[in-house]
Amino acid sequence: MESMRVVHYLNQFFGGIGGEDAAGAEPQIKPGAVGPGRQLQARLGERFEIVATAICGDNAFADDPAGIAERLIALIAPYRPQLVIAGPSFNAGRYGQGCGQLCAVVQEKLEIPALTGMYEENPAVEQFRDRVLIARTAGTARHMGEALYSIAALAARLARGETIVQPAEAGCFARGLKRTVFRDDDAAKRAVDMLMRKIAGQPFVSEISVPKFDRVTPARMAASLANATVALVTDGGLVAKGNPERMPTGYTDRMTAISVTGRRQFATDDVEVHHFGYNTQFVSDDANRLVPLDVMRDLEREGVIGKLSETVYSTAGAGMSLANARKVGREIGQRLLQDGAQAAILTST
């Protein structure tokens, strides 16, 4: 049986080029196994052959992840690998980024499996675990032996053509994704079974886990309210009359900007509401029920706030993915800064 061709990726340090001083090293490739690659080859056994080792400096990779990955692919491809193994990078952030990036691009461009290993606190875990199989390792290279042992075991499974259906059960980080499956029993029976186990104090596995979200440090008011420009933002689906930008009613990655210059309040011939997640009748009748323009104009005139920002930003928050919400949020945040807004009131349905 012919052995499986593997290309291994290492950073400048493990690749033997140098330490932090060599972190700018350009992509390069050496035939055969290098450094920890020799130990990896021993773990993999004779069914695998490390045919080449690709190496790049951590800083060089971090400065241009997409470009470097592209160049590494060009170096790797001629070796016709069937599997790429990167790292392990343990808790090294930039190295982890490089390993994750390379594995992701290898899978996409070369259409072969790729595999790496990291410590749970490596930021690259969060960044790549949805796309890349990442074996759990300890925090430092002192544990190289065990890390390579797990990676070799996974490589053997991939070599058999196996798909790692539940990465968490294979010593890897869960991808954090979900998929449709059909279970043996209907939902009613499963729910009562789960409840009976819970009552009896026996172990059970919830089919949906409690989510964890990033935390952003909240900004604080820099000016007094009476001097501040305050903006209005909504996820309730407000659009200009006739919806000229064809804003969708949900599942969107877009926002729309609505000028309120010269308007004391919203009227039915100014705006419409498009959002599939709730009955928009009441806010269509009077959009001030969704975005309180009339009251904000009063407060502006009375001097309670310095000024109302003249652009309202809006999106439809129905069925919106977190990634899209982050994108839209970032865009609106940037626009608010450009507009000189010092505070914003968000309204949500």
Binding site: P211, A219, M221, A343, A344, L346, T347, S348
Partner: peptide
Amino acid sequence: MGVPTAQICSMKEVAAMVGS
């Protein structure tokens, strides 16, 4: 550098869950 926000919403627990 950010913009401080206050969120008016009916599903307060949702806003709290995501860290508003």
